[in-house]
Design a protein around this nucleic acid. Structure first.
Lengths: 204, 204
DNA sequence: GTCTATAATTGGATAGAC
DNA sequence: GTCTATCCAATTATAGAC
């Protein structure tokens, strides 16, 4: 069972190079020449693994989407300590949302949606949709525990996400300003405070 | 004082054609040939008015941004009838935000921000920033009238905008699903309801 | 001022040697 | 499997006639 020299090695380096290039420059502005150079391979090799530039983008989006919601679980949070739990969720969520990789992949998908509508669906299901499920699950548990007064958990989860995203997400998509860590945490806390004003209960 | 044949006429038709083409297909996918054809002019004429494709995009974005917040004034709304006023604002705002032209221009700017960072700033100031000012002004008046319990009007205005934008805005940017008019109004009312749970007062 | 025709460059994709 | 060298189509931009 001696492992054969991994044939995935070159493919991996190509994919990694494509990822760096696309995330840094977008789809249209990056040439296959540039990707090949960055990967330390020739264009011919590149085309041996991926039949077109479009397919290469698809592979990058799929992989990046997969990693999106990876580190975001709300399962272990205690619904009885709502404020602390919501703050923790908001922090993680916002940090993820504003990370350079996620912003970059968002930009590409939004910018190329006219040419590649399928990418958006892949991204949505792997990313935002999973996040919403996590949030909704937490809202349901908190509602049961009596610490949140929520009738429609799906709606509330969406509104929580929107409050956390705030203006800062769109600003980052537009490349306006650099968010420091303090601003990020402040935004998260403001979102939680307003959410609690709307849905909090006397239970503390 | 016989007026000379308006020299702006051709420029206008070129700009209009470029606008249609860019909004429909994005920046990279549209060629100068296509724009010239659509404008009923030759490429040479086109380059006589705009020195490059980039400059043409800049002109389109500037014009489109100008029209963004045009029909959105909250000045005439009565802060004493908060719910009705907020519903009216939310309706207008969401309708604007989800209009095909605004979605399209958003996509282009976001997708090309790596190449043209200046466009984003133009857009932001002419669009979202003006909207925020209108919202904040209304919040301030309602706070004075005692119909909203708001300490930080700037923050509250941003949160209102975020609630209204909701998930539906990002979904539209990603080209997922078609929002009918009923869904739009429902989204607006849900946003207002939550905002009022957070900031409403006993005053009705 | 506007057009036709063309230059000049780029970039996606491939053939063929090793 | 990988590389070098090349093809071909498309695109931006311009020169020169009318």
């Amino acid at each position: 069972m001696a492992a054969p020299a991994a044939p995935t090695e070159k493919a991996e380096s190509i994919l990694a190079a494509a990822q760096r290039a696309f995330l840094a420059g977008g789809f249209g502005a990056v040439s296959m020449d540039a990707i090949a150079r960055e990967a330390g391979a020739s264009k011919a090799t590149l085309y041996a693994y991926f039949t077109s530039k479009e397919e290469l983008l698809g592979a990058v989006v799929a992989r990046q989407s997969e990693r999106y919601a990876e580190g975001l679980s709300a399962g272990e949070l205690d619904p009885r300590d709502v404020e602390a739990s919501l703050n923790a969720i908001a922090d993680r969520f916002l940090r993820l949302l504003l990370s350079p990789e996620v912003i970059a992949i968002n930009r590409i998908i939004i910018g190329e949606v006219a040419r590649f509508p399928a990418l958006a669906a892949i991204f949505w299901r792997a990313g935002p949709e999973r996040v919403r499920v996590q949030l909704e699950e937490f809202c349901r548990r908190a509602a049961t525990a009596g610490t949140l007064d929520i009738a429609d958990t799906r709606l509330a989860a969406g509104q929580f996400a929107s409050l956390v995203r705030g203006e800062i997400h769109l600003q980052q998509l537009l490349g306006l300003g650099e968010p420091d860590d303090a601003a990020l945490r402040a935004a998260a806390r403001n979102a939680v405070a307003t959410f609690l004003r709307a849905f909090g209960t006397a239970e503390k």
